[in-house]
Structures are given as structure tokens and as C-alpha cells.
Amino acid sequence: MTPFYSLIKINDNLAELLTTIFEEKVNNPRFELGNLTDIANYQNGLAMQKFKPKNSEESLPVLKIKELNQGYTDASSDRCSPNIDQNLIIRAGDIIFSWSGTLIVKNWSGKVAGLNQHLFKVTSDNYPDWFIYEWTKHHLRRFQSIAAGKATTMGHIKRSDLKDSNVYIPDDKHLCEFDREIKPIYDKRLEIISENQKLTELKQILLKKYF
């Protein structure tokens, strides 16, 4: 097995461990009841076709659902101006939630990019990244079911669906306790995601050079 696929396996195992601990300890009705919009900001991307780079301007690749699925931007990715809302410039490790079409939640693993519409950047001013990532992921299957039931060509969810998604919010003492245990696992995943990206880029360079 190559190092690349070994890292993927390790990452999958860490993701499973992260979710297992989260569901056992955090998803607990003894804590305060809230909803997804109480714990996280879900910022939609832009219609990037309206923000094309000017002739002499440097540009950024556009992060769309295709790029999120494959984990990187490439030569076929659209380009956008870097002069957009800085909150919509995405970097490796950011939590991205595709709320239309193919509904997925992932940590972005590619290069700096501009966030397209139909994707949320998920952030929080008050809670750890692992906390908002896992709670969003916890509701993903239900979101997928909602989207599948839409009578449109591209199923999606609404912000009201986020508000209808219950979460349990631990008190500060328990949250700090959980953070000490869960954050190292989450951070290790991000390290592996970054290493995978470097190997993917190297693979692409070698393929272009020799084939």
C-alpha cells in the first residue's frame, strides 16, 4: 500500500474515532438544547461568475461542489477576483458544507480559493471547529433526505432547516474537558489532510512531466 492510501486509511480511522467520541459524550440530552445556527455561522458563497478577474489582475481558483468532492482545484476550475469578501477566501482546513446538489461536509484540503454559491463556510466565534463540524455532520443524512425530496433538478436545504436541527451545548466545564480530548484528534486529521494534498500535487506534477 502506498503512503498516500495509508494516510487516507489513517484519516478515515481518525474521523470514525472523532465521531464516536462526539456521539458518546457531546450528543447528550443533559446539556442545553440549541440548534445549528446557535453554535455556528453558515456563510454562503458568491455567484463567482459576477466576480471574474480583470485582465491584469491576479486571480483565485473557484471552489465549487466539483472541487469540494475531489479535494482540490485544477486547471479546469473557474477563476475569480481576489478582491472579494475576505471571509469567502477559503484556506486549507476550513469547514465547507455543500447545501445544494451533492450535500457533504468536509475540511477543505486544497489551495486558497474563492467560495462559490451553494456552499457554506462554517465558522464559530464561540465554539471549537470540531464541535461545529461534528454537529453539522450529525445532521447530514437528514439534510440529504430533505434535499432528495425536493421537486427540483437540484435538491437543497434552507436556512430554516439549520434552525430546525437540534444540538446539545455542554457547559463551559464539560466543553473544555471534551476539547482537551477531541481537539488533538481533529487537528491530526487536518495534518493528514494537508499531507495528502501535498502528495496529490506531487502526483499531478509527475503525471504532467512524464505522461
Rank of each mutant, 00 (worst) to 15 (best):
P3M: 09
Y5A: 00
I8V: 15
I8T: 03
I10F: 02
I10A: 12
I10G: 00
N13F: 01
A15T: 13
L17Q: 12
L17D: 02
L18H: 04
L18K: 02
T19K: 14
T20R: 13
F22I: 07
E24A: 10
E24C: 01
V26Q: 00
E32A: 10
L33Y: 04
G34K: 00
I39V: 14
A40P: 03
Y42N: 04
Y42F: 15
N44A: 09
A47S: 14
M48D: 06
Q49I: 12
F51E: 06
S56K: 12
E57M: 04
P61Q: 05
K64P: 00
K64D: 15
I65A: 14
K66V: 11
E67D: 12
L68A: 09
L68H: 01
Q70C: 13
Y72S: 13
T73I: 10
T73R: 03
D74S: 09
D78E: 13
D78Q: 13
S81G: 11
P82W: 03
I84N: 05
I84Y: 03
L88M: 07
R91V: 04
A92P: 00
I95A: 07
F97Y: 13
V105A: 12
V105S: 05
N107T: 03
W108T: 08
S109E: 14
G110S: 11
K111L: 12
K111T: 09
N116S: 10
N116D: 13
L119Q: 03
F120C: 10
K121F: 08
K121E: 02
K121T: 01
T123R: 09
D129S: 15
D129K: 15
F131A: 06
I132H: 05
W135M: 01
H139Q: 11
L140M: 05
L140V: 03
S145I: 06
I146F: 11
A147G: 12
A148C: 01
G149R: 13
K150E: 07
T152I: 12
T153K: 09
H156L: 01
H156Q: 12
K158S: 08
R159I: 07
D161H: 15
K163R: 13
Y168S: 07
Y168V: 03
P170D: 10
D172Q: 12
K173P: 00
C176S: 13
E177S: 11
R180N: 12
P184T: 11
K188C: 06
R189S: 05
E191F: 07
S194M: 06
E195M: 13
E201P: 00
E201Y: 08
L202A: 14
L202V: 09
K203W: 09
I205P: 00
I205Y: 04
L207A: 06
